[in-house]
């Protein structure tokens, strides 16, 4: 599901052709003129377009065709119409997977944004060694997910020897099962993702904070506003475009959550961490049911699309606050 990545590419498309004074010249000379003027754009645009068509548009369209077939890896595929779509509406596990994914996003989106903002405020506050802290906070983002997940899994071991269990023990809290408890596992996985991603949301917020004009704070100071008030009256509202952008990307990534469940819980216990992408992967590559996996991927696409549109309607409109 990389529809969003392509947005960037769309921006690179050539600008609208400038309306030129229609001189009476032959088509050939006009084309020549046009080419002389825009050739470089075409040269850069065409390969990207070809790449986009082959690796984005074609798979997207072909997977839609797949949903109506019983697709075989080798050999003849048969047309089955809406059979796979019908199966989706009766598949309890698929519904559970969607529900788990929604719960995961609730655990994940707001904390990621909040933590990213707090970290950005820390490094923007002019403390000493700001660059050092920026590096530390950003470290999980550039570290391999497999390694971060391994460490996380080790920390949250459900036995008495687990690091977090030992620490809880100091406060007299009894031993927890974490990843082996269906009520906790998803939250622990969300914690891992928050740790992994908040470094990059910090960078977005940091950029946003830097772009807020300093005189606003000076004026507020003269009016006698305290730091708390300045944050809620100036900083927070002026970060609105950043909030919107971060909200969209964290929402999308939360719906695509897969690797932590794959690495740490295998979808368990009792399917409590089976997310939609994990289920899709299982269906596709373990059960060789690629057509049904394609249906699930379209369901995911529809969900992400609808949520993004809603968010845009309610949050994205008025960025005329400046």
């Amino acid at each position: 599901m990389s529809q969003e990545e392509t947005k960037e590419e769309e921006y690179r498309t050539p600008p609208e052709k400038q309306p030129k004074q229609p001189k009476k010249s032959s088509l050939k000379t006009r084309m020549k003129k046009h080419w002389d003027k825009y050739s470089l754009i075409y040269i850069f645009f065409v390969p990207i377009m070809i790449h986009f068509l082959i690796f984005q548009v074609f798979p997207f369209a072909f997977s839609f065709v797949l949903t109506f077939m019983d697709w075989k890896i080798i050999g003849d595929s048969t047309f089955v119409g809406f059979e796979h779509w019908a199966r989706f509406f009766q598949d309890d596990l698929a519904h559970l997977a969607i529900w788990n994914t929604v719960v995961f996003s609730i655990y994940y989106i707001i904390p990621t944004m909040g933590l990213g903002l707090i970290l950005a405020l820390i490094i923007n506050s002019g403390i000493r060694f700001a660059g050092f802290f920026k590096g530390i906070f950003f470290l999980p983002v550039v570290t391999s997910f497999v390694i971060v997940a391994g460490i996380w899994g080790w920390m949250f071991q459900g036995t008495a020897d687990g690091l977090i269990n030992m620490m809880l023990g100091w406060f007299g809290i009894e031993q927890q099962l974490f990843l082996s408890d269906s009520d906790q596992a998803l939250a622990v996985l969300a914690g891992l993702s928050i740790l992994k991603v908040s470094g990059s949301t910090m960078i977005y917020y940091f950029a946003g904070l830097q772009s807020i004009p300093g005189q606003l704070y000076e004026a507020a100071k003269i009016d006698g506003a305290n730091a708390f008030r300045m944050f809620w009256q100036i900083t927070f509202p002026l970060l609105k475009p950043i909030h919107f952008y971060v909200l969209i990307i964290t929402t999308i990534s939360s719906f695509q959550i897969f690797d932590s469940a794959f690495l740490l819980t295998g979808g368990g216990p009792n399917n409590s961490t089976t997310t939609i992408v994990y289920y899709l992967y299982e269906q596709g590559f373990t059960s060789l049911n690629l057509s049904y996996a394609a249906v699930l991927s379209y369901v995911l696409f529809a969900i992400v699309l609808v949520i993004s549109l809603i968010q845009r309607k309610f949050l994205g409109k008025d960025d005329n606050i400046y």
Binding site: G158, T159, D161, F178, S180, L264
Partner: peptide
């Protein structure tokens, strides 16, 4: 067997 046996992939450390 350890309490995390529900989802543990192995118990090599133990």
């Amino acid at each position: 067997i350890p309490q995390d046996s529900v989802t543990a992939m192995h118990h090599n450390e133990l």
